[in-house]
Amino acid sequence: MNTVAVIDYGMGNLHSVAKAVEHVGREAGDDVRVVVTADANKIADADRVIFPGVGAIRDCMAEIKRLDVGQIVEDAMKSKPVLAICVGMQALMDHSEENNGVDCLGFLPGDVCYFGDGLKDESGARLKVPHMGWNQVKQTQPHPLWKDVPDNSRFYFVHSYYVQTPKQELVTGKTTYGKEIVATLAADNIFATQFHPEKSQKAGLTLIGNFLNWDGSL
């Protein structure tokens, strides 16, 4: 039995994540159980943890603090594989510019910045914000979660803020939208994605399958 806890702190489309994980487990013939919960004990008992998040960072951080999710994630990160998705990834950083500035968990070094108005591509064409849709991800470092995911595969993004980190060695994937930005980060047994693997069809489901088999080492 492979138990996956999806941390439920009231933010995010947890059902999409849970359904995608169940689907991947079923297709692989693995005995995967998904629990959607905020209960620290259940999360501690799980084999691996998913930290999702959508919406505004201020509301996410407020709920993370209220339910002490930071401690839960910190504990999980010490002992088991963790997959952080979208605002879940952003919440791991030091600080976000969103909502006039919000302090985040500070588990990974770096900040979350706004794309800016007047964003343009190389040819000078205007780019919309949010960055919404399927963009290519360049794998900048090998990682077990990239197994069988072709380089430059497209993943589904929807975000107006992006992560910047001074520690480039943490960056495992990049995408380009007006500028080159971080698509994925990895540190020890945590892997974080700005995109939504649960909505990224084959490439995303492959990545989730890799996460289900990952022991947290490189």
Binding site: D121, L127, H131, G133, W134, N135, Q136, K138, N152, R154, F157, T175, T176, Y177
Partner: peptide
């Protein structure tokens, strides 16, 4: 490398 236009 660019964002794809979507067909829905």
């Amino acid at each position: 490398m660019a964002l794809a236009k979507r067909i829905i």
